[in-house]
């Protein structure tokens, strides 16, 4: 009788150990998969961001928009085709009048 009880307890411990090992194995697999997916996603985002240009968007045919293109114009301003209005990089200053040229309606 005592031997039967001892055997049953050992079997339960063994079964519990098996369940624990199985769960840890599954958890390990999931962790590895999540890790690999994260690395792939970060890599893809890095490639995408690396190709991005300010003011430009993907796609070659556009409708009413301004994709980048090869520019044959020698003196073209690279920032002219960006769809944003940016302040000058240097301050607008007061100046003594009169000036050599005038800006106004034309």
């Amino acid at each position: 009788m005592g031997r039967v009880r001892q055997s049953s307890a050992a079997q339960r411990r063994h079964a519990a150990a098996m369940r624990r090992d199985g769960a840890l194995s599954r958890l390990s697999s999931i962790t590895a998969a999540v890790g690999v997916a994260t690395i792939v996603a970060v890599g893809a985002l890095g490639v995408y961001v690396g190709k991005a240009l300010p003011g430009h968007h993907a796609g070659s045919t556009t409708s009413g928009t301004t994709a980048a293109s090869g520019n044959s114009g020698q003196g073209a301003s690279a920032s002219s085709s960006q769809s944003a209005l940016n302040p000058p990089s240097t301050a607008t200053q007061s100046a003594p009048a009169p000036a050599p040229v005038t800006s106004g309606s034309s």
Binding site: T90, A95, A97, P98, A99, P100, T102, S103, G104, S106
Partner: peptide, 20 residues
Amino acid sequence: AIGIADTCTTRNASEAVSIL
């Protein structure tokens, strides 16, 4: 220096600014 006026043909505009 650039004079500021109603029309660009104005000479000796009384107000001016400068840009770099």
